[in-house]
Amino acid sequence: MAEAILTATDLVKHYPIKGGVLRRTVGHVKAVDGVSFELLKGETLGIVGESGCGKSTLGRLLMRLEEPTSGSVVFDGVDMYAQKGRAMRKLRRDIQIVFQDPYTSLNPRKTVGDIVGEPFDIHPDVVPKKGRRKAVQDLLDLVGLNPEHINRYPHQFSGGQRQRIGIARGIALNPKVLICDEPVSALDVSVQAQVVNLMEKLQDELGLSYIFIAHDLSVVRHISDRVGVMYLGKMAELGEEDDIYGRPTHPYTQALLSAVPVPDPTLRDKKEQIVLKGDVPSPANPPSGCRFHTRCFKAQDKCKTDIPLLELRPDGAGEHLSACHFAQPREIIETIDLTEQGAGNAV
């Protein structure tokens, strides 16, 4: 098994809620509340969950755009949150991010050359000044844009092209890890596949590791080697792609999978859908015990008091991490395996 390049241990991020005239802290939004995982070299770890589950905050913590309330991230043997000044700047070269919104992620007053070249301005030792223009054009070429468009402004590009610019900026410093925060969800369907394929190509060519944060379970299945499912700031289930999609043991994962519409009308009546009660509770006041117990179809008294740990639990074929007292595998979707055919075609 490949070694871990990034290890997050018990990450917690609580945002204070200020109230009253004196702006005193009256509570905390528990956006991320004890998340641990490993990212292996060269793999894609998908993080899925609904809005408010803390997946975007997690991405920002891993980028150190936010300081955690507690917990640690070790990157390549270095404790990220202990780094300061030059050491932190150096570390930033190795972890980069691609944002969701291709419209707000590019400075509208800069040319594409400025945007993609900014990493070289900030880290001048990477590419000598003379070679920068060439380096930027090479990057544009790599992400499938016309290198001659270096002097254009972001608004002259479509959403998909802008996302490619964002990716070019992200990989400029040759990072080891790229954190992708919903990189395709703002794009048109016919353009999504282009960007997903580009990201897969770049991973192969540059040996990148991805953390792929998204709410679209189909895209995550397609691109990920392993998948983590988040609910209200905690990891509900974590395992190989096969484990999560083929043998989910957590009721939330099962409900989530059953709700995803599959583009095949013949499955209409075959699919059983697990309908969840109510809405996601507020992360400012999460339920006691298991956070999912208020909506869970399996909930018992134990779930209201005891927090289930994320630990290896049997899934029928083996075991994978799941945070449910009553973890039990259940097949939600019938998987059509195209891997062998795909390999056959390639040969």
Binding site: I97, D101, S105, L173
Partner: peptide, 21 residues
């Protein structure tokens, strides 16, 4: 805006972020 966050992620100094973004 994400472009300000992106500059932070790249390790840009506050002065640079203020000046150019």
């Amino acid at each position: 805006n994400d472009y300000v966050q992106a500059a932070r992620a790249l390790g840009a100094s506050p002065w640079r972020i203020i000046r150019s973004h």
